[in-house]
């Protein structure tokens, strides 16, 4: 191993700090999450829009039945986080491309970030605090597995 010693009178330059290349990780995220989303979204569309009676079959009891199964809880959580961050990052790219006014650009980026955080928190809370047999339900709107009042 050889060590090079700089000439004594060369001026000192502080070592360059290696910054995290966020743009690179964002680029990679779009591709990796996209791969997962192809499976997650087509599965979601097939089960909710095509299989059975399609969108006509969807109501409170349908959602309660799905979320009684941890498989769909995990599926929908992944869908929420991967899709919303994928979409928000895409909107960020488009904003950076077209919003030339710096103030407007900052405002749009802030709005995208704020709506993403709010919807991620809201969606996650909805999935994990969901009550399939709420007390305020009208008769007949609950799934079969709820105790009869």
């Amino acid at each position: 191993m050889t060590t090079t010693i700089p000439a004594p009178r060369t001026s000192y330059t502080p070592p360059k700090r290696r910054r995290v290349n966020w743009e690179k990780w964002g680029w990679l995220y779009m591709r990796v999450s996209g791969l997962f989303l192809v499976v997650l979204i087509f599965g979601h569309l097939f089960v909710n829009l095509v299989a059975g009676n399609g969108v006509r079959a969807i109501d409170f009891a349908f959602v309660a039945g799905k979320w009684a199964d941890p498989f769909w809880v995990v599926w929908d959580t992944l869908l929420l986080w991967l899709a919303l961050i994928h979409g928000a990052n895409g909107m960020r790219t488009i904003t950076n491309d077209y919003a030339h006014n710096p103030l407007l650009r900052r405002l749009i980026l802030l709005a995208i970030l704020a709506s993403t955080v709010v919807l991620l928190v809201l969606g996650t809370l909805v999935i994990y605090t969901f009550d399939p047999c709420p007390a305020n339900a009208v008769a007949g709107s609950l799934p079969d597995f709820c105790p009869v009042k």
């Binding site: 895409g90 909107m91 909805v126 339900a137 009208v138 709107s141």
Partner: peptide
């Protein structure tokens, strides 16, 4: 298509969240 899907997604998360208010 990406922008269109994004705006649908925003609405879709909100409409699904109503499942937490009441079945009706």
């Amino acid at each position: 298509t990406g922008v269109a899907i994004y705006f649908f997604l925003l609405v879709h998360i909100l409409d699904t969240s109503i499942v937490r208010i009441s079945p009706q």
